[in-house]
Amino acid sequence: MEQVVDILSWLLLLAGSFLGISGAIGLFRFPDFYSRVHAASVTDTLCALLIISGLVLQAGFTLITVKLIIVLLFLWYTSPVASHALVKAAHYHGLKPLLSDSNEDEVKEEEVSSKS
């Protein structure tokens, strides 16, 4: 039984590490700032969830588990607020997103209509 739990938490920790490294590589492979936010949010959500669940399996039913879950909740509450603030600030100060061609005109119209 204990070995099953160990193997399971091994798998969770490894999957979390893999996801984190993928997100970090996405930080380099994605073309512009707005897409990089998506790569960073991979590491903030599922990577954190997998690593914390791997640790929870090791801790068992103790106060440590409660603390781990609180850490995860803090991360999940703060990370969308931080990325939203970041993207909104970049958008307002005129950092142009790289868009596929068909979408470009639509956004311009949208901006004109929202300003008028």
Binding site: L19, S22, G23, I25, G26, R29, F30, P31, D32, Y34, S35, H38, A39, V42, P97, L98, L99, S100, N103, E106, V107, E110
Partner: peptide
């Protein structure tokens, strides 16, 4: 998103705003 990071040929990144 993982597919778009590792297999950028088959799953291209096409940012869109709406």
């Amino acid at each position: 998103v993982l597919k778009r990071i590792w297999f950028s040929g088959r799953y291209p990144v096409e940012p869109i705003m709406k």
